[in-house]
Structure formats: structure tokens, C-alpha cells
């Protein structure tokens, strides 16, 4: 079973980013608890190199690295159900 890898690009710690992080953590705990899951948080202010390498144009940006296909979404990350649909999670082959 391959690990679900999520990368969240944020710009500093604001109430909005805190809310996005909390939603993702809740999503992982409540809805993806049966899967190996990894959430990486990258702050583009402190790590601009990563932002450039990954061609990040806006924050917050959430990238589902794996399983493929890769998925990249931008905006209000505050709806767990909508996020699961947008990210095609949980993966059909893993469920």
C-alpha cells in the first residue's frame, strides 16, 4: 500500500493557513485513518527555493503527490468532503 503524500504550501502562519492545516489534519485522522499518510507543510516565505522548484504560483496550494495522478488545488481548504473529491481520495485501489 503506497503512502498518501500531501504537500501544503502556505505563506506564513495566518488564521487562514491554520484553518487549512487543521482541516487537513482532521481529514487525515477521520477519513484517511486506514491509509499510510504523510502531510508536508512548506512555508514559501521561509523556503522560497521549494516554491520555485515546485512552481507554486499561489498559496495555499495543496498537492497530492501520491498516489498518482498528481493533483494540485488552490483556495479555501476548509471543506473535508470537498477536498476528498477534489483530490480523488481515498484512492479506489487502496480502499
Amino acid at each position: 500500500m503506497s503512502t498518501i503524500v500531501l504537500q501544503l504550501f502556505i505563506a506564513g502562519r495566518t488564521p487562514r493557513t491554520e484553518r487549512a492545516i487543521a482541516t487537513l489534519q482532521q481529514l487525515i485522522t477521520d477519513r484517511l485513518g486506514d491509509y499510510p499518510c504523510e502531510l508536508v507543510i512548506i512555508d514559501v516565505i521561509t523556503d522560497p527555493q521549494q516554491a520555485e522548484e515546485r512552481q507554486i504560483f499561489a498559496t495555499p496550494t495543496l498537492i497530492k503527490e501520491s498516489p498518482l495522478p498528481q493533483r494540485r488545488i488552490i483556495g479555501d481548504l476548509a471543506d473535508t468532503e470537498g477536498l476528498l473529491t477534489a483530490l480523488n481520495l481515498p484512492p479506489v485501489s487502496m480502499s
Binding site: 505563506a11 514559501v44 507554486i56 499561489a58 498559496t59 496550494t61 494540485r72 488545488i73 488552490i74
Partner: peptide
């Protein structure tokens, strides 16, 4: 280039745009 798909709860979302010079 991969900009990303918009994900909104309401009609509008507030985001930060990362400019080429690193400014937000």
C-alpha cells in the same frame, strides 16, 4: 504550467499570489 484547480467553499476565496520576485 501547473497553476492548480480552484477550490472554493463559497463564491470567493482569498489567496496569496507568489510573484516571480518572491513577493506575495
Amino acid at each position: 504550467q501547473p497553476f492548480g484547480l480552484p477550490f472554493m467553499v463559497g463564491e470567493v476565496a482569498e489567496i496569496s499570489l507568489l510573484q516571480a520576485n518572491g513577493a506575495l
